[in-house]
């Protein structure tokens, strides 16, 4: 919780700026869309944080989003599979991709950066080739399946704002992952592995298995997220769908207090981090900044956030040394 305070502060600040300067920011339709995006990116960011906590990285998230997202309408519309076949197939494929990453990292000892960089190129390439680089969409059908991501729940007493259904899987996942780290043996062990993989191995922690499973979970969440994204937007082009999503996910995790060195995570922080980036994107447009500046602004905010975090950490460490007080975890 303490780790999440910083990002909650940043979120609040950007939110207030958006309220004051952003035209139409506080309208129901805008906030509804923002919630939807924040929920979807949170799911990707939670996946990314599972890998980051091991000290690894997954650069292929965006391409897995693309492959899973493109395959869903492709199988439904072009190949006329039933939704009950398509959804498990796409999820299984995503998990299998993660399994490959995990095994390459733990068994072949390849660097996560390289393995997932190759994945980034590979899965997008496959998606484009599979579909002949054609836009894939639901052709206005499959409304009952798309409802998974498109349903909005009314809140009694509030008129313009309804809660998007994607918030439900986001909250369920966040709670599960939070409990995983605080309550389960595997969660403890995964954190220990991220802190010091060698010491974890000497202590009898099945590090290779745990790390592999984190990659599986990360890709599975990316594939699940990709499906929700395509349900939401209806159609997408294989050449640009999901571009840079891995960077939003990783940035959200880092803003939320995950250390790229591994061993640290704050689930609330990751979710708020993902939301912060979406509010920021929204704000840039609403305050009338050129949308071409989007990446530059996000980059700058991320840099300031990470630098501030490091400075505060050093300040605390120095204070600790001066006073000689006992450190509390």
């Amino acid at each position: 919780m303490k780790k999440a305070l910083g990002i909650i502060g940043i979120f609040a600040a950007i939110f207030i700026v958006a309220c004051i300067f952003g035209e139409n920011f506080l309208t129901g339709i805008n906030l509804m869309q923002l919630t939807q995006r924040a929920a979807l990116y949170s799911i990707l960011a939670l996946g990314a944080s599972l890998v980051i906590v091991t000290g690894g990285i997954d650069l292929s998230i965006g391409s897995v989003v693309c492959l899973a997202g493109i395959m869903t309408p492709w199988l439904l519309v072009e190949h006329e599979w039933a939704p009950a076949q398509v959804i498990p197939t796409v999820l299984l494929m995503s998990a299998f991709i993660g399994l490959c990453h995990g095994l390459l990292v733990t068994r072949l000892r390849l660097q996560p950066f390289l393995v997932t960089l190759c994945g980034l190129l590979l899965y997008r390439g496959i998606a484009r080739w599979m579909t002949g680089d054609q836009t894939q969409g639901f052709m206005g059908e499959f409304g009952e399946v798309r409802a998974i991501a498109l349903t909005k729940f009314a809140i009694p007493g509030i008129e313009n704002y309804r809660i998007p259904s994607t918030v439900i899987p986001m909250i369920v996942l966040a709670v599960l992952i939070g409990l995983f780290f605080s309550r389960t043996v595997w969660g403890r062990w995964l954190l220990a592995t991220g802190r010091n993989e060698s010491a974890a191995r000497y202590s009898g922690v099945p590090t290779a298995w745990l790390v592999t499973m984190s990659y599986v979970a990360c890709s599975l969440l990316a594939g699940f997220g990709g499906m929700l994204f395509i349900f939401d937007i209806g159609s997408a082009q294989p050449s640009d769908f999901g571009n840079f999503y891995e960077l939003y996910a990783i940035a959200a995790a880092v803003l939320g207090g995950c250390s790229l060195r591994g061993g640290e995570i704050s689930v609330i922080g990751v979710v708020v981090g993902a939301a912060t980036l979406q509010v920021l994107r929204n704000t840039i447009i609403l305050v009338g900044l050129s949308s071409q500046l989007e990446f530059a602004v996000i980059g700058a905010v991320l840099l300031v956030g990470v630098a501030a975090d490091e400075l505060i950490r050093r300040f605390n460490a120095r204070r600790l040394e001066r006073t000689g007080a006992a450190a509390s975890a």
């Binding site: 309550r183 389960t184 043996v185 595997w186 403890r188 062990w189 220990a192 802190r195 010091n196 060698s198 010491a199 974890a200 191995r201 000497y202 202590s203 009898g204 922690v205 061993g263 509390s328 975890a329």
Partner: peptide, 30 residues
């Protein structure tokens, strides 16, 4: 290098192996 989780608390370091032995359904007995 191989024994300690230096940035973690004494409690985390000491209970790492025990949490497995005493867990029920993989849940840590806090």
């Amino acid at each position: 290098r191989n024994g300690l989780f230096l940035e973690d608390a004494v409690s985390v370091n000491m209970s790492l192996a025990w949490v497995d032995r005493s867990s029920r359904a993989r849940l840590v007995d806090r």
